[in-house]
Amino acid sequence: MKKCALFSIVSSLILLGCSSTEPQSQANQDETFTSVELVPNKQAPARVLLRGQIVIGHESRTIQPCNSNTTYWLSLPESVRRIAESMTSKPYQPMYAEVFGYFEPATMGFAEEFGSQFVVTEFNIITAENPNRCDQPTRDARAFGNEPSWSAGITDNAITLMQLGKETQVLPVVNLEQDTKGTRYDLVQGKLEVNYQVCRDSMSDSIYGRSAQLTTKDQTYVGCSTDSNEYSDLSAGEYSQSIDNSTNLTLSLRPDHLAETRYSYTDGSDDVVESGYWQTLESGLVQVTSVTYQGQKIIATREFELKGDTLSTEHETINGATYPLTNGGLTLKKAQ
């Protein structure tokens, strides 16, 4: 395994989620379930977290982010889609999900109707138990399970093990290793292994994106694990620029990742509007992609450099061809 520097994952001190990986030998267990892996895609252009309500069916695979009226097409790995759909009791039943991934234009099939799609590369949870979880507090990274019920907060220097009726144990981390399978925390006495393997909650209709096994000097605990679901991108906001004293360009980057570019004219002409999505790329650039122009389909992308409260770019790519922007490009200031 490749050794890595310790990194900070904030501790979770709330005892929740009696979950465990069901044994592969169980009679009603799909034999392929415990072999389903969802390894994070290191080549993905971005890692965005969306929390919200999802619907999975033959003609509709969508996500509506929390506190948003926007709906995106949801592109799930086929193995995960089949498992999630099997948890519902009726067609197109809403579920709650926390998924990591990136945006791209939707140009084919049922997805084309939405213009934008969210490609899932990892997930924390997909559950049919309660689709209305957007108002629940966010949580830090943790591992948890049942039989016995346990929960462990994960930090860069300790695993905090909590059990009902027992004293909390703080287990120091002495080494951390990562590879393509997951992460291992070596403890003073024991270890925590978090693997990129889909984990089923044996007490509810829920699945998780990681399995976990915590070994202490006294016992081995088996269950699931989630990353922190607290996410915000400080790039969100409204940016504007006056062009030649005749046009005002306003770029709105909403927290639900909807992007709108609006051109307003001093001569009273009707506004021109482009809409689509935005995301901060792994390179640090803010990518804004319009999928409609005045209601007509288009794929137009601008990649902005963010410095302080200013977004700037000199190029635009339209339907695959890149063009220089006139007058030295765009320099948009964020509204305070």
Rank of each mutant, 00 (worst) to 15 (best):
P324N: 13
K3Q: 13
K3M: 06
L49P: 01
Y265S: 11
A212M: 01
Q29M: 14
M87W: 06
Q136A: 14
S269F: 03
A143V: 06
V170F: 05
T215P: 00
L38T: 10
T280Y: 00
V286N: 03
S232Q: 10
P148R: 00
I63D: 01
Q26F: 08
R133I: 00
S275K: 07
K166M: 10
P77D: 08
V291M: 09
E31S: 14
S20E: 05
E314N: 11
D271N: 15
V39F: 03
R139A: 13
P94W: 09
A44F: 00
D156G: 15
L171G: 08
T247L: 10
E303I: 03
N41S: 14
V288I: 10
L38V: 12
A27L: 12
T280C: 10
I14K: 11
Q53T: 12
I159V: 13
N130S: 13
T71V: 15
M87N: 06
K191C: 09
S225R: 04
L285Y: 06
A106Y: 01
L285V: 02
N28C: 12
M1R: 08
S228H: 06
G284Q: 05
T317C: 07
V272E: 13
N28W: 04
I318M: 03
P23K: 01
L15E: 06
Y231F: 15
G295A: 04
I56D: 03
R47L: 02
Y208N: 06
M1K: 10
G268F: 06
D140F: 11
D256V: 02
S86R: 08
S151F: 01
Q169D: 01
E167P: 00
F110I: 11
Q294A: 14
S206K: 04
L311N: 05
N41R: 09
D205E: 07
R82N: 11
S240L: 01
T326R: 11
S275M: 07
L76P: 10
S11I: 12
G182N: 07
N319M: 08
V194Q: 02
T168P: 00
T121H: 00
S252H: 07
N41G: 07
G101C: 09
L6S: 13
M95P: 09
I125H: 06
S204I: 05
D156Q: 10
G182T: 07
N132L: 10
M108W: 01
Y265P: 05
C18F: 01
